[in-house]
Design a protein around this nucleic acid. Structure first.
Length: 287
DNA sequence: AAGAGGCCCTGATAGC
DNA sequence: TGCTATCAGGGCCTCT
């Protein structure tokens, strides 16, 4: 589900809602996520105050009051929901927490705060929770990942150095988190379209101006997606249950057989599996 | 080293 | 209606 922009939207809402709040209770219903949820997680989190919620790439970083961290990855289908304590009214006084959008199944982990609770829901269970002991561990945890597109280190020199001699197609490098981290399948397609580069093109055949386009458009597409609240394809919603609307801005993703949106281009969007992922591109303007 | 491919898992949808 | 097959926003692992 979530690429960098969607995770950033989740981060913002979480930060707004749980910063400076104390975790009163944890319920772990299912430990079988991508990695087994540590048995010590409840103890690790209980009675800690949230100093803030940060993000690197597609990872959420919960900063705890004892300067430890809880790392959360949403995998393909993970979502986070914030449920407000229901105000007592004459119509209802039974449920402690209430939300019309609460999924029925796959609520694996719940955090209880004073006036709200946070639910981690994940049907496919490709997401995970990890405990990080200190700043150094956190740094090591991300050491195998490349820079985010916004990072100054993601520049022409770095890109050309990384891609020279690479025989694989350029699209698989945009998805390769060791090269650049945070881009997923949707935005890789969109970035290549804006850069007018065919996803199948061998990385080593790109020229300097194409490196430049990739760098600029990576920033542009991700920033724009964050601004629009992320993309809601199947089930992405922010923690208040609201959908993003970047999907209305897709140029190629999910637009098979439709007309290329570029003015003056008479091309048609094609779908092809490249490196095991669905790939959408214009048959004319992406060279 | 680099690249190809498989696997983890459930749910939605298409086709018969 | 109910089967089966295919596909989905990610990342890790093995094999060559």
């Amino acid at each position: 589900m979530p690429e960098l922009p969607e995770v950033e939207i989740v981060r913002q809402s979480l930060n707004k809602n749980i910063k400076n709040q104390r975790i009163k209770k944890i319920i772990i219903r299912n430990r079988n996520l991508r990695f087994k949820v540590p048995v010590t997680l409840s103890k690790f989190l209980k009675n800690k105050t949230i100093k803030g919620v940060n993000r690197f790439s597609k990872y959420l970083i919960i900063v705890l009051s004892d300067n430890r961290y809880c790392l959360i990855h949403l995998g393909m289908s993970g979502t986070i929901h914030i449920i407000n304590k229901k105000k007592k009214s004459k119509f209802s006084n039974t449920s402690f927490y209430h939300s019309p959008i609460l999924p029925k199944k796959h609520n694996h982990i719940e955090f209880f705060f004073n006036k709200l609770k946070v639910i981690y829901n994940d049907p496919r269970r490709f997401g995970f929770f990890q405990q990080i002991e200190d700043k150094n561990d956190l740094k090591n945890r991300f050491s195998h990942l490349g820079p985010e597109p916004f990072d100054k280190r993601f520049n022409i020199k770095y890109v050309s150095q990384f891609l020279k001699n690479k025989k694989k197609n350029i699209k698989s490098f945009l998805l390769d988190q060791k090269f650049v981290s945070g881009i997923g399948n949707i935005y890789a397609n969109e970035i290549l379209f804006l850069s007018k580069i065919n996803p199948n093109k061998k990385a080593k055949h790109l020229n300097v101006s194409q490196y430049h386009l990739l760098i600029q458009n990576s920033k542009k597409v991700l920033k724009n997606a964050i601004k629009k609240g992320g993309s809601s394809i199947k089930d992405f919603k922010n923690v208040d249950g609201k959908e993003g609307n970047f999907q209305d801005n897709f140029y190629v993703y999910l637009r098979e057989n439709l007309k290329c949106k570029k003015t003056s281009c008479r091309g048609k969007i094609k779908k092809k599996v490249i490196s095991n992922r669905s790939t959408f591109f214009c048959n004319l303007c992406q060279k």
